[in-house]
């Protein structure tokens, strides 16, 4: 392992980590740490915040201020930290159940508010920590522990949801495309406002096994073969059944804290 990565980790008794063999979360974490390092940020410049779930265990391995909050509540918790500490770079790591089901309301309102933070959604299409139940991103018809006959519900498109809610930067990658993912996370952190990076990830132990998708390598090959970049999508049907990766949305909008500071200045001039 690269020394630069090791230096960023808490190397006491936290390892070996809890992730299953073949899990994609480590790859996403690796990309995130490299993105932080390449952005010139030290571990003192960041605060890593999570809720509950497999991906929410990532902050515990990183030697920085880390905040392992309640299930679904990473974003509101980060909101308080950021507003009381606006100089810190807020990085939120969340799973699909955590961010989009129990934390769905917080997610859309944070995007609308446009407070400067980067949300990394590790989407493995199921609740891994609790044993593989279906999540808001489980595709219709796919199996999960609570969908033995196939998932009846339709899935969320987290990126569309982010765009629709007002996020200023929305991008997607997969655990196969880690250098690409790293670049997107760097862009997201640089963006002044609410940024979302969705990482399509594999859960070979549960979702993959239940849907006979093969081992981690097979699942990564699937990501490789079924991904298409934003620029390759010429018309909507090109994206059908594909994972569209790249920057999906990048706009400018007033950042919340800066706007709030103007309110303070106004209140103090009165």
């Amino acid at each position: 392992m690269n020394q630069e990565i090791l230096d960023r980790l808490r190397m006491d008794d936290r390892f070996p980590h809890i992730l299953c063999p073949g899990c994609g979360i480590g790859s996403a974490m690796n990309a995130m740490i490299r993105a932080i390092a390449e952005s010139g940020l030290t571990n003192d410049d960041i605060c890593i915040i999570s809720g509950i779930g497999c991906s929410s265990r990532v902050p515990g391995y990183i030697d920085a201020d880390t905040f392992h909050t309640l299930h679904g509540r990473a974003i509101p918790s980060a909101t308080g930290v950021k507003l009381a500490h606006p100089d810190k770079e807020m990085i939120i790591i969340a799973g699909d159940g955590d961010l989009l089901a129990i934390g769905g309301n917080h997610f859309i309102h944070a995007a609308r508010r446009n407070l400067d933070m980067t949300v990394i959604l590790i989407n493995n299409h199921n609740y891994g920590m609790t044993g593989g139940q279906y999540s808001p991103t489980t595709p219709q018809g796919k199996r999960a522990k609570t969908a033995p006959y196939g998932c009846v519900e339709r899935a969320f498109d987290a990126c569309e949801m982010g765009i629709g809610s007002g996020a200023v930067f929305v991008a997607r990658s997969t655990t196969y495309h880690t250098p690409h993912l790293k670049g997107l996370i760097k862009q997201a952190m640089k963006k002044n406002g609410f940024a979302l990076v969705e990482v399509i990830s594999q859960c070979p132990t549960l979702y993959g096994r239940l849907n006979r998708m093969g081992d981690a390598v097979k699942m990564l090959e699937y990501f490789k073969e079924n991904s298409i970049t934003v620029s390759q999508v010429k018309e909507p049907k090109d994206a059908e059944g594909k994972i569209v990766i790249g920057v999906l949305h990048d706009i400018e909008a007033p950042e919340y804290y800066e706007s709030y500071r103007k309110v303070c200045e106004h209140a103090q001039r009165r």
Binding site: T79, K82, L83
Partner: peptide, 15 residues
Amino acid sequence: IASICSMIGASWAGA
């Protein structure tokens, strides 16, 4: 829920 969580976050940031 968001109110109390953000308050907890702010407290950990020293406020």
